[in-house]
Design a protein around this nucleic acid. Structure first.
Length: 841
RNA sequence: GCCGCCGUAGCCCAAUGGCAUGAGGCGACCGCCUUAAGAGCGGUUCAAGUGAGGGUUCGAGUCCCUCCGGCGGCACCA
């Protein structure tokens, strides 16, 4: 509408000549080396960005005090990076949009803490040491320096005084301190567990080092090995971790965590082993109602009772199978569609409900790590048990019937609900009710009762690796496992270590480290040579940012009272389970140690999607890493930031394609020209005013919702409107545009703000206020439908009552034609939007 | 196999159950500029009817069901 007015007026020739003059200046600038004066008028991102990055540092613009009068604190946390050697566009995608949101929040009057640090321990650094003979500490420092430079280039508004680096003793001593506290509380313990073992590297691998069942480094198939390890008792919090009340977290993340924890209700019961008084096989089942159909039992090959129940005649075969299972790679044992193989032990148990003698088998499909490592097998009502029974000719007895009649012999397992049959006194009971009835029956008989089982296992924190936090215990021949006293922390990771990649933890070869004195008896002792999982480091780093240097505690408690819990957390969805679950666990454990006063570490969480390239994850090994540097050089950081936000919804991620980056580059150039252009004479323009206020509302809402792409689009739209605008409204609009754009493109807006005479810094200005009255249209287009089909569009005053809108619609000529001779049944009015006239059939 | 998410112009994407003469961008095309090309600038004259089918509704891209296609997670969890 505004455009039409302009074209009616004699303005176009004037504008055309202005454009011609700009064009002339621009083409001359291209032809020759620009003079100093001409350069001032061109947008040269490199100059602008270098200048303001320096100025911001000099003026300490990004330092956040713990308190700022009149400004509420807001803790905006983004997952800190692992300082790997390759910085790719995905890093910018993860950090630039949250930086924009945090900046906007500052302009909106909050005292925003936006800290950064490095998750600096980890396997890659150690592998680099092995492969390239660089010490992990050196490699890590080099990478951190590179990444700090990237953040600086990006213009991220980080308070670097608060930087946290997890590989420094000042940090990891608190890992050790927490370990000792958890140990005292019984939340840390030493236990036996099957772990991933790489036979070629002769070392245990972290779960994340096992890719598709193979060792990340040497591609060797990984096997399970039983080892004594340290655990954190996360399962003690399983039920609490399933509660998300008061948390504003995406549904997807909550679902992933819920599935991971895998709560199932059922019963744990035990059947006695025949011929071994006192021995019984405990098992967990979610279907106690099927117990009368339990015609055999299956133990995991690693189960403690295998040796006990096996009869001499079966011993050779059983041992062979156990040995095979033990050495078989996990991927083969659990592969989809794998044949269910097993061996009869020769032993029998007694089904406590039927009184029957039932054979005990061992089979790979029963996992030692879930439940009790043993099952009652009910072939009629479990697909796996059915397949197994078919294969080995075991009894299949129907005990749940969908309709109360018999279907034997069964062609497949029936896993649904139904009526209990062949179940003694329980016959005729609905299976839903039978679950509870049988569990209670078992309780009365003293063989078990209702219970809950979880898929979640305790968190194995031991790693046979060098580049991590040493576990602060010593092993004394006399006193056993002895914790290092608090006053001897930190147990410092020694620097002089040989990296061969062979023969277990490098720490075990460092005599000065291993040889220790027992704190209890004063005798010679061996230090534990395992280090902690790096997820331990990241489970509590958000508390350390408050004061990374404080020596008296892991956290500045006073500052914590002002900032915690974290208001907003962002990061990659790939951490939905591990890191985010560990972080929640650690908050609850520290709470129970009396160290924290809240239940959840972060109230609101939002994730970004993954940036892939050619449909594949970017990684050095694939050789498809897309680095931001070339784009920054050619277009500047602001353009790249903006492009990152504009590619699509942040949660969706993107397939990296720089083809569209010219669009954001042109936009910033257009803003540049607009902001530095001379004012255009004219009157106040209410239509433009309305557009400005609508943009304020749109951009404000979008940034708070992390809808960066539509915020950018709205700013582009406003720029178009302003470029053909005039008068004081145009000036006000340019000012508003710069303020709204400032969080997204911090450098160029700072430059333009300064050039237009604005006070330093644009980032310290108040966010534009949105006036609902000004944003409201005076005139709206009312769509008139007849039976849902658009018949006319009417320009009417805004705020018409339903009766008025209805009258206007019925009066329209096109509508009158459409409804002529027919009866109106009803009329639906959506205020200021449409009228739908429904005709009688 | 189970769970979750997503299918809108050539491409990326927008649209509180209410106008898809689509917000924005890429590309394309037409001008301007240029010896030329590119880049730049101005413009829109380009393009789909929302993966397929059914249902609910006055009205469905949006809600429900089935199917097709893609992505992610879990995967013998008893």
């Amino acid at each position: 509408m505004a455009k039409e007015e302009v074209s009616e007026d004699p303005a176009p020739p004037v504008r055309a000549s202005t454009i011609g003059a700009e064009r002339l200046a621009a083409s001359e600038a291209r032809r020759a080396e620009p003079t100093a004066i001409e350069r001032l008028d061109r947008y040269v991102p490199a100059e602008v960005e270098a200048k303001w990055a320096d100025t911001w540092e000099r003026t300490r613009l990004h330092e956040t005090p713990n308190e700022l009068a009149g400004r509420p604190n807001y803790y905006f946390l983004t997952m800190f990076p692992y300082p790997s050697g390759d910085v790719h566009v995905g890093h910018w995608y993860a950090y630039a949009p949250p930086d924009a949101a945090a900046r906007a929040m500052r302009m909106q009057g909050k005292n925003v803490l936006f800290p950064m640090g490095f998750d600096a321990f980890g396997i890659n650094a150690e592998n680099a040491a092995i492969d390239r003979k660089i010490h992990p500490a050196v490699w890590t420092e080099k990478n951190m320096a590179h990444m700090r430079e990237q953040f600086r280039m990006m213009g991220a508004a980080i308070d670097w005084r608060r930087e946290v680096v997890t590989c420094y003793p000042e940090y990891y001593r608190w890992n050790q301190w927490m370990f000792l506290r958890l140990l005292e509380k019984g939340l840390a313990y030493r236990g036996d567990a099957p772990v991933n073992w790489c036979p070629r590297d002769e070392t245990v691998l972290a779960n994340e080092q096992v890719i598709g069942g193979r060792c990340e480094r040497c591609d060797t198939v990984v096997v399970k090995r039983q080892m004594t390890q340290w655990f954190y008792r996360i399962t003690a919090y399983a039920d609490e971790l399933l509660r998300y009340e008061g948390l504003d977290w995406p549904e997807r993340v909550r679902v992933l965590q819920t599935n991971w924890i895998g709560r199932s209700e059922g019963a744990e019961m035990a059947f006695p082993v025949e011929g071994h008084p006192g021995e019984e096989i405990r098992f967990f089942t979610t279907r106690p109602d099927t117990i009368f159909g339990a015609t055999f039992m299956v133990l995991a090959p690693e189960h403690r009772l295998v040796d006990v129940v096996t009869t001499p005649d079966r011993k050779a075969e059983v041992e062979a199978h156990v040995e095979k299972a033990r050495n078989a790679p996990e991927i083969e044992r659990t592969a989809e569609g794998a044949e269910k193989t097993g061996v009869f032990t020769g032993g029998y148990a007694r089904n406590a409900f039927t009184g029957e003698r039932i054979p005990i088998w061992i089979a790979d499909y029963v996992l030692v790590t879930y439940g009790t490592g043993a099952i009652m097998a009910v072939p009629a009502h479990d697909e796996r048990d059915f397949a197994f029974a078919k294969k080995y000719g075991l009894t299949i007895r129907e005990v749940i019937s969908p309709d109360g009649t018999s279907h034997e012999p069964l062609g497949t397992a029936y896993i649904g609900e139904g009526v209990m049959v062949s179940s003694g006194a329980h016959d005729g009971t609905r299976s839903e009710d039978g679950k509870r009835a049988i569990a209670e029956d078992a309780k009365r008989r003293g063989i078990g009762g209702p219970t809950v089982s979880y898929r979640l296992r305790d968190w194995l924190i031991s790693r046979q690796r060098y580049w991590g936090t040493p576990i602060p215990v010593v092993h004394c021949a006399k006193c056993g496992v002895v914790p290092v006293p608090y006053d001897q922390l930190p147990v410092v990771l020694p620097r002089n270590v040989e990296f061969t990649g062979r023969g277990g933890s490098p720490l075990s070869h460092v005599r000065e480290f291993v040889e220790a004195t027992c704190p209890k008896c004063g005798g010679a002792a061996r230090r534990d040579t395992d280090t902690m999982d790096t997820f331990v480091d990241s489970s509590w780093y958000m508390y350390r940012y408050l004061d990374p240097k404080i020596k008296s505690s892991f956290m500045d408690r006073d500052a914590g009272r002002k900032w915690l819990p974290v208001h907003q957390y962002t990061g990659g969805v790939e951490h939905a389970i591990l890191h985010l679950l560990y972080m929640r666990f650690m908050a609850k454990a520290l709470r129970d140690l009396g160290e924290l006063w809240f239940d959840e570490p972060a109230i609101r969480f939002r994730y970004q999607g993954t940036v892939v390239f050619g449909g594949r994850k970017m990684s050095k090994s694939r050789g498809n890493v897309q680095t931001p540097d070339a784009y920054v050089k050619r277009y500047g950081a602001d353009t790249l930031r903006l492009f990152m936000m504009f590619m699509g919804p942040w949660v969706d991620g993107a397939d990296w394609d720089a083809a569209g980056i010219d669009g954001t580059w042109r936009f910033l150039n257009a803003v540049w020209r607009l902001a530095l252009s001379r004012p255009v004479a004219g009157d106040a323009d209410p239509d433009l005013e309305r557009e400005i206020h609508r943009t304020i509302r749109k951009v404000t809402d979008d940034l708070m919702a992390f809808h960066f792409n539509t915020a950018v689009a709205a700013l582009m739209k406003l720029e178009h409107r302003l470029s053909s605008g005039s008068g004081p409204t145009r000036d006000e609009g340019i000012r508003t545009l710069l303020l709204l754009l400032a969080p997204l493109a911090p450098f160029v807006t700072e430059e333009l703000w300064a050039r237009r005479g604005g006070a330093y810094s644009v980032h310290q200005q108040a966010w534009p206020a949105y006036d609902a009255d000004l944003a409201r249209s005076e005139e709206v287009t009312l769509v008139v439908q007849v039976d849902g089909k658009v018949r006319d569009r009417l320009a009417v005053a805004a705020g018409l009552s339903n009766d008025e809108a209805q009258a206007a619609a019925l009066a329209a000529e096109k509508v009158r034609q459409a409804i002529a001779g027919r009866r109106v049944e009803r009329i639906v009015v959506v205020p200021d939007r449409l009228v739908n006239i429904v005709m009688a059939k």
